[in-house]
Simulated scan of single mutants.
Amino acid sequence: MESLEAELDRARDLDVDDLADAIESIGFECTRCGACCKADEADPHTATVFPDEVRELQDAESSGDSTERDWRDVARPMPYGLTETADGTEGETFEWALQTDGCGDCTFYTEDADGVGGCTVHEDRPLICRTYPFSVALAGTSQPMGEAVDESGLVRAHECEGLGRDISREDAEDLAAALKERAVRELDEAIDVRDEYEPADSASGEVVVHDSEGAKSPDGTLRKR
């Protein structure tokens, strides 16, 4: 298996025009169905968000909402690796997921009276949202399960009703640039998480989140070493 550093070099060498060709070949237009923002039948919505993106969303202007947000209004510990005990949730996990509401949908998702979905922080949405339903198949990146879009199998597309619709070259290039940025950011983050990681001495009922900035509590504050 290639090292994360080697995969990062591959991500940095991605050709935006080639990515745009792949996106343009299948086509995409968001239909605002909300499927990518809502919980599925079994699990709450889970979308990875970088630490600096959490801070940006804390300060983002939200349509119809002027409330000041703290870290936990934006992000929650990624649930993988955590367990439920009689004392509450505990364990160690890696990275953050966008916060969800009581229905398991993204906390920033809303629907109008006609059921048309929308994001209340659309201009400041994270890279994983900007690039959905696409990803690049590099080790160390988040890869939605889906079909290969290009012959090399590098560009992948998750099931989405917006696929197959016309997309302009300009929009394909914008999406491709964001897709490359996301791949580089995810690998940078993975390398920093690996280098910063130290097993946590956590007490019962405690959650520790490891991200590129170190070990943190669920409120986003760094834990003392």
Score class of each variant (00 low, 15 high):
Glu7Leu: 12
Ala11Phe: 10
Ala11Asn: 06
Arg12Met: 08
Asp15Gln: 14
Val16Arg: 09
Ala22Gln: 03
Ile23Val: 14
Ser25His: 12
Gly27Thr: 05
Cys30Asp: 01
Arg32Ala: 13
Ala35Asp: 08
Glu41Tyr: 07
Ala42Thr: 03
Val49Arg: 08
Phe50Trp: 15
Leu57Gly: 02
Glu61Pro: 03
Glu61Thr: 08
Ser63Ile: 10
Gly64Cys: 02
Ser66Cys: 06
Arg69His: 06
Arg72Trp: 14
Asp73Trp: 02
Gly81Leu: 06
Asp87Arg: 08
Thr93Val: 05
Gly102Cys: 01
Gly104Cys: 04
Gly104Thr: 05
Asp105His: 04
Phe108Trp: 07
Tyr109Glu: 12
Thr110Met: 10
Gly115Leu: 04
Gly117Thr: 06
Gly118Thr: 00
Val121Gln: 01
Pro126Leu: 09
Arg130Ser: 15
Arg130Ile: 15
Thr131Ala: 14
Ser135Tyr: 03
Ala139Glu: 15
Gly140His: 09
Ser142Met: 13
Ala148Thr: 11
Ala148Cys: 12
Glu151Ile: 02
Ala157Met: 10
Gly164Arg: 12
Ser168His: 09
Arg169Pro: 11
Asp174Pro: 04
Leu175Trp: 00
Leu175Ala: 06
Leu179Tyr: 01
Arg182Gly: 03
Val184His: 13
Asp188Ala: 09
Ile191Glu: 02
Val193Pro: 13
Val193Asp: 11
Arg194Pro: 03
Ser204Lys: 08
Ser204Cys: 07
Gly205Ile: 05
Glu206Tyr: 02
Glu206Ile: 00
Glu213Gln: 06
Gly214Leu: 08
Gly214Ile: 03
Ala215Thr: 00
Lys224Phe: 05
